[in-house]
Design a protein around this nucleic acid. Structure first.
Lengths: 246, 246
DNA sequence: TATGGTTGTCTATATTAATAGACATTTAGG
DNA sequence: CCTAAATGTCTATTAATATAGACAACCATA
């Protein structure tokens, strides 16, 4: 078991208060403070990280802004929210089933859609001619009213014309496919990377700047192995983990 | 098509120069500057990100420190290194085979080993009694002399006594297993998360502070589905991606 | 109700990050 | 060999980050 006593770094472009906020957020997600339901006192944290109490206060203020903790004078800093959703990645990966009962309410919002010619990369992924028409959907998924993923997803336009409306009505790719006559599909590959959230992600996923996002690039095919969908999805890394079961 | 013009954020604990350095690093990895082999001029970048030229210079200095670019007076800022290793995750995932021919030289170093009692979590993962002895290896893997992963990995001590030496000599888990009589093993699950690098990772993986790491928690079993190894591996996110093929 | 533990607020100071402008130095190419 | 286009270096100023200390306000509980 690690002690977790890894010190904070100075003069590297990341403010101390942000590093500390990230560490506390992770500790909360890991359940380190479950015994009390509270974050340790500011004075204790300051000693732990080797910084001034005011610096810790800045970190806690940021977490309070995110709605993760709430400070009460005289009592301490209470943990308000604690979650890390798990997404299994299998041959039959579906977003809504993946969440399962980890959330009571699930939602899929269509932010934007467009018809456009396929780029070089996209044509290779979907195995269609370069420049062939594709439909692009920009979607936002929520669980219990909190955004958990921001996706850009492409479909061959000739086969899935009208999927914008189907998704918009149902809020589910699986259902939208079914409405267009595709009863089943399979996940054939998923690429996972991580990066800092960009401006659009910050806004859509309601993150604080400097946050990390997990990026999954996924290819789905029908049962005849013909590509039907290519998607790039971005998840807040502090709320989500992927599980690959073989 | 997005413009990619996502602006940089102020007063959020992440210095502008670091945000810009991260963005440029990502652009290099994505091959955005392959046509010229150079990063755009400082003046251009400054306009692009909406900051002062000196701020861009700080970002480029950080990238130069990492060995990713090299500035030459009068010529420009040349790209020195550009890589993103791909690790396929399958039922037969092995580190060395995963790299394949993406690197000429591969290396596995044993940093530290210890025998210790299994924690609650570990006993559940390896399906052994709580407190049973396990062997812990701290390893560092390199490709072409650059560190690509830092792993902590556990084995049941009663079955794999002496694996420290076997790994130390061979630099390969697969070979070490074989030396101890286990000819084959399978990856049954992999959990992937992302976080900021901590102090130890910064040092071992030679990263600059604020860097992102991908964390993979993996369970391997023998062909009878008996757990033989549990590992937590940390990879620099800007150098690595995972691919899950189903 | 008194006390200890905790967060809230204030002032002051030093360091780091970012902007602004000017000019020197080097390289590539006409 | 001159010029345009780059990077290198310097000074100065402002804003954000971090430290330090003191004390007020509040809460739980003995």
């Amino acid at each position: 078991m690690d002690t977790g006593q890894t010190n904070v770094h100075r003069q590297n472009g990341v403010a101390l208060w942000r590093q500390i906020a990230d560490r506390i957020r992770a500790s909360i997600a890991d359940g380190d403070y479950d015994a009390t339901g509270k974050v340790p006192p500011e004075f204790t944290l300051a000693a732990q990280f080797g910084v001034n109490r005011h610096t810790v206060r800045s970190a806690l203020a940021a977490l309070a802004q995110e709605g993760i903790v709430r400070s009460v004078q005289g009592r301490g800093t209470l943990i308000e929210r604690k979650e890390r959703l798990n997404f299994p990645i299998t041959r039959r990966t579906r977003f809504s089933e993946g969440i399962g009962d980890q959330a009571r309410e699930k939602e899929g919002l269509l932010l934007h859609s467009a018809k456009e010619p396929a780029s070089v990369e996209l044509s290779a992924r979907l195995r269609i001619p370069e420049g062939a028409q594709v439909i692009r959907l920009e979607t936002l998924r929520k669980a219990d009213h909190r955004p958990v993923s921001r996706s850009t997803t492409w479909f061959p336009a000739d086969r899935f014309g009208g999927i914008e409306e189907a998704y918009s009505k149902s809020g589910s790719i699986t259902v939208a496919f079914r409405m267009l006559g595709l009863s089943d599909y399979l996940r054939v590959s998923t690429e996972v990377t991580a990066t800092h959230a960009d401006g659009a992600d910050l806004a859509d996923l309601q993150l604080s700047p400097g946050a990390i996002i997990l990026v999954a690039r996924a290819l789905n095919t029908d049962t005849d192995c013909v590509p039907v969908q290519y998607a790039v999805s971005r998840f807040p890394a502090d709320m989500v983990q992927f599980t690959i079961e073989n």
